[in-house]
């Protein structure tokens, strides 16, 4: 029952879950707080899809801050999450020229400091990587995704791609990394 699932997880437990990749607790936290953000975004002129995008971006921000130990929490985690989402939504509507000068809040929030230079640089490099992966083509795109995101081992990758053995698959992965490196730095240096 849902009531059994959502009872009493405190902020320390949630932070620990984000640190240890406890997906079950993370999922509870995710589901518990989405309505709050969904209602905020929709009430302030957004769609459910936009709410989802903002919410997931905020969860990623919190996940990374917890794991690189840069999260400074002076309020409840829920308030912090709402504040990050609020900030992201404000940025988004300002960028689109849709900000009417007023935001209707449904929760209390804290002013979140602007990204420091390191976060901005990290996001910039992530965008370059994203574009590089979109340009790399097959089989490298799937091979690198299988290795880095799906965490498949080289034996399984060799079998999937029909390579003779894990060593051949590894050589192919290095070739793909070289190709990725070229695209990545071409984009980076042309920016």
């Amino acid at each position: 029952m849902i009531a059994d699932i959502v009872v009493n997880i405190n902020d320390s437990e949630i932070i620990e879950a984000f640190r240890t990749d406890n997906k079950s607790v993370m999922q509870r936290f995710y589901k518990m707080n989405y309505p709050m953000v969904s209602h905020f975004v929709i009430y302030n002129g957004g769609t459910d899809q936009e709410a989802k995008d903002v919410y997931q971006e905020a969860i990623i921000v919190i996940y990374e801050k917890i794991n690189d130990r840069s999260l400074v929490l002076n309020c409840k985690l829920k308030t912090y999450l709402y504040s990050v989402c609020r900030n992201l939504w404000l940025k988004q509507i300002s960028k689109k020229g849709k900000f009417a000068g007023r935001i209707e809040d449904l929760e209390e929030f804290l002013p979140i400091e602007e990204d420091n230079g390191m976060e901005a640089e990290k996001n910039h490099l992530f965008e370059i990587m994203n574009n590089s992966m979109l340009q790399i083509g097959e089989p490298c795109f799937t091979l690198l995704n299988d290795f880095y995101i799906r965490k498949m081992n080289m034996n399984d990758i060799a079998e999937k791609f029909g390579y003779t053995n894990a060593d051949t698959a590894k050589t192919q992965r290095y070739k793909c990394m070289n190709r990725l490196k070229k695209i990545f730095f071409d984009i980076k240096n042309s920016a």
Binding site: I60, E64, I149
Partner: peptide, 21 residues
């Protein structure tokens, strides 16, 4: 950067599954 990319995409995939529920 690949580590950041992988972390974000893995988490995004997880969240999309949670979201469907």
């Amino acid at each position: 950067t690949m580590a950041t990319y992988a972390t974000r995409y893995s988490l995004k995939n997880e969240m999309n599954q949670w979201h469907n529920n």
